[in-house]
Simulated assay, not measured.
Amino acid sequence: MYYRFVSLFCICSVYVTGGFAVDGIASDGFQRTSFDSPKQVAEHWDVRNQDGKKIVHSKLKGSPCVIVLFRGHGCYHCVKQLGEIVEVESRFRSRGVRLIAVSDESVEEMGKALRNRPLPFPVLSDVRSKLAKFLGSDKIENWHGILILDSNGKARWLLCGSKPLMDFREVLSQIDSLQLSTTPLETHGLESRVD
């Protein structure tokens, strides 16, 4: 009986979906996904900035990117997470890695929140949760995620769970181990990358 349970647990914990390996949920409550080969997310990218302008995925190319998927500004823990990211955003910039936060709240809700509390990195709206669906969730509101893209805009690593990540050392370590660091960035901004 014990052997059957362990076998079933192992089968459920590690599986392959859509060409990438998904590890089971770790004891810290997060699931980590290492992509066997980088996966293009362009067809699953449908985001707008706080002015309602569409941000084209191809404009992200040129530097690695960390995308923080969060539930929106109405989530206390998500807002706290955004504050934690502000504290370490310079570590991403010094590695040449752009930070972007994405939620499924409306452009209007997002714009109102950002007027009251501007952030040093872009915050974008994906109202149809296209990226979250590609990554395995029905909607962004169902979980939190950290996605690392390489300089070609392809997914390399994902961490997700029911709670937001508050310590970004593992993400920075993944960036280093994937050798994604490039020339330091002055800003995370996408102003010149809007269509």
Rank of each mutant, 00 (worst) to 15 (best):
I148N: 04
E108H: 12
E108K: 13
R95V: 07
C75E: 06
A155S: 11
R95N: 06
K112I: 11
E186T: 12
L99P: 01
G52R: 07
L147H: 00
L165D: 06
G136V: 11
K61W: 10
S151P: 04
D28R: 07
V56M: 10
C65P: 04
I55G: 01
L185R: 02
F134D: 11
I25M: 11
F121W: 10
S181R: 01
I100M: 02
G62K: 02
N142W: 07
G189K: 08
V41Y: 07
V79E: 09
F70E: 05
L159F: 06
V79C: 06
A26E: 12
P118N: 05
P64G: 00
Q179S: 13
S13D: 08
V171L: 06
Y2N: 14
L82E: 03
V22Y: 02
E141W: 09
E89F: 04
D104R: 11
S13C: 13
S192E: 11
P164F: 04
P164N: 02
W45T: 09
Y2G: 15
P122I: 08
V88G: 00
D167P: 01
T182R: 08
R48N: 10
P164K: 01
C78Q: 04
Y2P: 11
E87S: 12
S173H: 13
V102G: 02
R93G: 03
R98F: 08
E84C: 07
R71E: 10
K59S: 12
S27I: 14
V79N: 10
H144W: 12
V127P: 08
T187L: 08
